[in-house]
């Protein structure tokens, strides 16, 4: 799946390691939460990059104490209608102060991009023929926001004041 960061397609340095699959040496990996919990110490000892993937029903509170070790947290959208990962992203950013990559994976499309950005996602595995164009379209769609979220963009109320 193409990876979109800052509006540009980039090579994804990470590979996913599912279930009990063998961990490739010297490669940046993203593991499911269960694997992280069972092999935490071994995984921490590696030198290559590390990420955890949370399903939409897995709370970021589960990894709140581990965030220093994680370069990526991938949050899953099994279907776009499942909006739990928006809450997860905001919690990671705003409550736990996570600064690493928050990646949207699964059913991710153009029409959700602007919500995701506001919630704190900064990387997108997007299913599209032209992700960069989608990105541009989404940026042009909506620039007015009423809600304060952790992404620091000024809300309407803040703009009114200034």
């Amino acid at each position: 799946m193409p990876l979109l960061k800052d509006g540009k397609l980039t090579d994804d340095p990470f590979v996913y390691v599912d279930g009990d699959a063998e961990i490739p040496a010297d490669r940046a990996i993203i593991v499911p939460l269960a694997r992280w919990k069972s092999d935490r110490d071994a995984l921490r000892g590696r030198s290559a990059g590390l990420g955890v993937r949370l399903k939409s029903d897995e709370s970021p509170a589960e990894i709140a104490d581990d965030l220093d070790s994680l370069a990526v947290v991938a949050l899953d959208f099994p279907v776009f209608k499942d909006g739990r990962s928006y809450s997860s992203a905001r919690l990671l950013r705003e409550r736990y102060g996570y600064q690493g990559e928050v990646r949207a994976v699964g059913d991710v499309g153009l029409e959700q991009l602007h919500f995701m950005q506001r919630a704190g996602f900064d990387a997108f595995e997007i299913d599209s023929d032209d992700p960069e164009k989608d990105w541009q379209t989404a940026q042009g769609d909506v620039s007015i926001w009423y809600q304060p979220t952790g992404d620091g963009r000024p809300t309407v109320a803040q703009q009114r004041k200034s």
């Binding site: 928006y86 919500f115 979220t149």
Partner: peptide, 13 residues
């Protein structure tokens, strides 16, 4: 009304 308009977290409840 304003707070709930296109809420980034609560548009896919």
């Amino acid at each position: 009304r304003q707070w709930s308009s296109l809420h980034p977290e609560f548009s896919f409840l």
